Simulated assay, not measured.
Amino acid sequence: MKGFDIGSDRREELRATSAILLYSGLDHTAHYGTVHAINPGKGGRASIGAGRPIDRSALLKCLTDLSQNAAPKAEFLPETVLAVSQDAVTWWCRPGMRRVFFDCPKIGKRSAVVPHPSLVFRAASNGFSVFALKEDSRPTPASTLHEPPYFNTWDFGKICIGSAHVPKRVDVSSIAGWESGFFESAFTHPNHGGKRVSYPKGEFAFWKAMLDGTFGEQFPKKSLVSMKFTLGALIAGKER
């Protein structure tokens, strides 16, 4: 077990001094634990010593030491950030005019600046999703989510990333990169699943009208399809 350098600001070599072993059943849930001292050994070849049942004091000391030396730095949260958890960031995107790109047989290769509704994005360890809103102001937990009126999306707002370039990190500082990955990618096809937009003759006719400038600078909110699911439920991780 070799030591390692913790950084240029504190030139100190760290070495393993103790170990905690957890014992789990078939359900992979820890049922028992032991704490062990690390024996230095000869030639730097350390080994794990005999263990003793782990107790509350050992766990508390470990957590206290780690929190003091590895606590994450606080970061400023913009107004658009709605929720941050260990594995997801949820934010609001104001309505406005943005460019879209299409590359599909029924529409062709086209690009135009079109109106977009207010949107909620969620980047998480298990995927990227987008939802539409009818209100133009910052949403509340009671706000109703609507289907995203876009191609390349699955049911419940899941985005088909495909060849889009999106960040590897899920944090507040990566929000701009996630948005760019969505808006700057070409819409190629409407995915199978539920109804994404309410419009005569369907989604292809809707987007042809959008690209032709039929709606001017105002997104047609009456075309949005309600999910009958709230922002608060999404943030809480509830199933629809």
Rank of each mutant, 00 (worst) to 15 (best):
T64A: 12
D65G: 06
D65W: 12
L66T: 14
S67W: 09
Q68E: 11
Q68N: 13
Q68V: 10
N69C: 12
N69H: 14
A70R: 15
A70L: 15
A70I: 14
A70S: 15
A71G: 12
K73P: 07
K73E: 14
K73H: 11
A74Y: 08
E75F: 06
E75V: 09
E75K: 08
F76E: 13
F76V: 13
L77I: 15
L77W: 14
L77V: 13
P78F: 12
T80N: 11
V81H: 12
L82I: 03
A83H: 06
V84H: 03
V84F: 02
V84Q: 03
S85W: 01
S85K: 02
S85Y: 01
Q86P: 02
Q86W: 04
D87V: 01
A88K: 06
A88W: 01
T90V: 05
T90G: 00
T90Y: 00
W91M: 01
W92I: 04
R94G: 05
R94H: 08
R94P: 11
P95F: 02
P95H: 03
G96Y: 04
G96S: 08
G96V: 05
G96F: 06
G96C: 07
R98S: 06
R98K: 09
R98A: 07
R98V: 03
R99W: 02
R99D: 06
R99V: 07
V100Y: 00
V100K: 01
V100A: 05
V100I: 15
F101N: 15
F102D: 00
F102G: 00
D103W: 07
P105R: 10
I107K: 05
I107C: 10
I107P: 03
